[in-house]
Computed example of a mutant assay.
Amino acid sequence: MRAWRAAVGAMFFALLAGCGSNDLVVKKQMEMEAKLEQLAQANASANTRLTTLTTEVKELQNRLTATAADMDAMKPGMAELKASIESIDAMVTDLNRPKTSKIEVVNREAAAAEGNPAHQDAYVKAFGLFSANNYNAAIDAFEAFMKAYPDSEYVGNAMYWVGECYYTQHNYNEALEAFSKVTTTFPNGNKVPDAMLKIGYTLMGMNEPAKAKESLQALVEKYPKSQAAAKAREKLVRLSK
């Protein structure tokens, strides 16, 4: 009897021990499943973040590509704007010269043409139209002046201002032709250095930097002491950078 009770007791404790062991296994399994779930969630979150980052990188690359394209598209306009600014600067400098301002030019011509009021009036009228930014009318007036008074010492000046009218309107082909005529048809005129300078500027506006440099260098060599040559040197330095 005592032996039977001892056997039953042993079985009972064995069962208890087995139950405790099963509970521990179940607990460990649950903990493992929880960790696996956490890892799965973390992995899903990482994948989502990676996808988001990949999308953001692609968008950034697209923006950079678009920005680069925009900059390339802007280059011709920027070159044209820069040439226009330099043209305005050249005109302002010319106007502010003590001995070569518009008023003094007109006055000198008036003194030289005292015996011919029509000669004076024609040039003054053309110059007034240019000063008023009425460039098309100024071109017609200067050309009429050159046709009516081909022997005037200011015919070369008139041709130069025709070139300025075209240049200001970004009509570079016509401007180049007019400035070139100043240097070839009136080689001894006082506007030749300025015309050579504007030929260089015009060629820059036409995206021909090599020819522009050649023209500016020729100006520096032929008229080294002129104000136009000083501007040409500054431009050549900038073009060399």
Rank of each mutant, 00 (worst) to 15 (best):
R5H: 10
T55R: 12
N136A: 15
E234N: 14
N62V: 08
E104T: 11
S240K: 08
C19H: 09
G156I: 04
M11K: 10
E86C: 02
M74Q: 14
A229C: 02
M206I: 11
S21N: 09
Y223L: 10
D94F: 03
N188R: 13
A144Y: 06
L39C: 05
E31W: 03
Q29A: 14
V124R: 03
A40E: 13
E177M: 11
A158W: 02
N190R: 12
N116H: 07
T54P: 01
T55C: 07
A144H: 02
T52H: 04
R238C: 00
N190E: 07
L81W: 00
T51H: 05
V155K: 01
N107S: 15
L16M: 15
K235V: 09
R233H: 03
G205S: 08
R238N: 05
L203P: 07
V124F: 01
L60S: 08
M1E: 10
R97A: 09
T202F: 05
T65V: 13
A112E: 13
L219T: 04
H170D: 02
N22F: 10
G115K: 14
N171L: 15
A34K: 15
P187H: 07
K222H: 04
N136H: 09
V26Y: 00
L16Q: 08
G156K: 05
A40W: 02
R233M: 07
V105L: 11
G189N: 14
A79C: 01
Q41I: 11
C165H: 01
S45L: 13
L203G: 05
K75W: 00
L50T: 13
M196R: 07
Q169H: 05
E33M: 09
A118S: 09
E214S: 15
K75D: 00
A10T: 07
A7N: 10
A126R: 01
N133D: 11
Q169V: 07
A137L: 13
F127W: 04
N62A: 13
S226R: 07
G20E: 03
G205I: 06
A6V: 12
F179S: 05
R108P: 00
